[in-house]
Simulated assay, not measured.
Amino acid sequence: MSRITVQCHVTLDGLIESPPEALLPYMSDEGRQATLELALAVDALLLGRVTWERLAPVWREQSGPFAERLNAMPKYVVTSTLTAFDAWPHSRGVRYADVAALREQHDLLVYGCGALARDLLRDELLDEMHLNMTPVVAGRGRRLFDEPSDLLALDLVSTHPYPTGALRLVLRPSPGPEAHGSAGGS
């Protein structure tokens, strides 16, 4: 079975949209290499409309191994409003209802932790999250999880510290209390 992996940057206080000084000083060659390896390990990108609109003008003009990978790979844009996708080669629009079928066919990587990532998590389509956490409290901005309606349990798969002080957390949605053992089993 194929999988969906989300990768995003987050501050210590859970912000996914923060000023550049909350991210840039903490980037490292080792972190960039891990990001490239993750992109090389998947078949395609799955992006929300807003993320696609932000990434397209930046990455289509870049060079180097990471930019070459992003520009060459298929990109599925989850949208109900966009109709033209020529701003970034190999992009095409899909409806959210199509994502489960895409997941059956491709290993997908999602950048950003906005509404698309939260919807995938809610609908049990998200397999793994790679959070690159910087040791910064930014204070204001959009949070990774804005007041979830229920307890959200994630299993920590691995951690990796970078020399800059950033930390990569790899998490998977927890299968629930019954998978961890419950009272009254057989």
Rank of each mutant, 00 (worst) to 15 (best):
V42E: 07
V157Y: 09
I4S: 05
F66G: 01
A115R: 03
R172Q: 15
L15P: 01
A41P: 08
E17I: 12
S18V: 04
W88T: 06
V42H: 13
S63R: 15
M1Y: 06
Q105F: 02
E124Q: 14
L125A: 00
C113H: 11
E178S: 15
L120V: 04
G14V: 07
L102K: 03
G176R: 13
S186T: 08
S18A: 15
L70Y: 11
G184K: 03
D43W: 11
R32A: 15
K75N: 04
T134L: 07
R69A: 14
R140T: 11
R95Q: 13
G64D: 13
T81R: 15
A41V: 05
L47Y: 04
A115D: 00
R60L: 08
N132Q: 09
L151K: 14
A34N: 15
L152G: 04
P19Y: 03
P20L: 11
E68H: 12
L167T: 00
A166Y: 11
D29Y: 12
A166W: 06
L121R: 07
A44L: 09
Y26E: 08
R140V: 08
L38D: 04
P74Q: 06
L55S: 03
A84I: 07
L169E: 06
G141S: 14
R32W: 12
W88A: 13
G112M: 02
L82Q: 07
P20N: 08
L108T: 01
T11D: 02
W59Q: 02
H130Y: 13
R92T: 13
A87C: 00
L131Y: 10
G114L: 08
S158G: 12
H180T: 03
K75V: 01
L12I: 02
Q33A: 15
H180P: 03
R142Q: 10
L120F: 04
M1N: 06
L154M: 09
R168M: 15
H90C: 13
G185W: 14
W59S: 02
D29P: 05
D13H: 11
S18E: 09
V77S: 01
A183Y: 15
G31A: 11
L102R: 01
D86V: 05
M129C: 07
L154I: 00
Q7S: 14
R3K: 13
L36Y: 09
D127P: 01
P163C: 08
D119N: 13
L169M: 15
M27C: 14
A41D: 13
G181R: 02
S149F: 00
A166C: 10
M73P: 10
E30Q: 14
D127R: 03
E104Y: 01
E17R: 14
L171G: 01
L116Y: 02
S2C: 10
L109K: 00
A100D: 02
S28P: 09
E128Q: 10
T83C: 03
H180W: 13
G141C: 15
V94S: 01
P57R: 06
V78L: 05
D146M: 08
L120I: 04
D86W: 14
G93A: 03
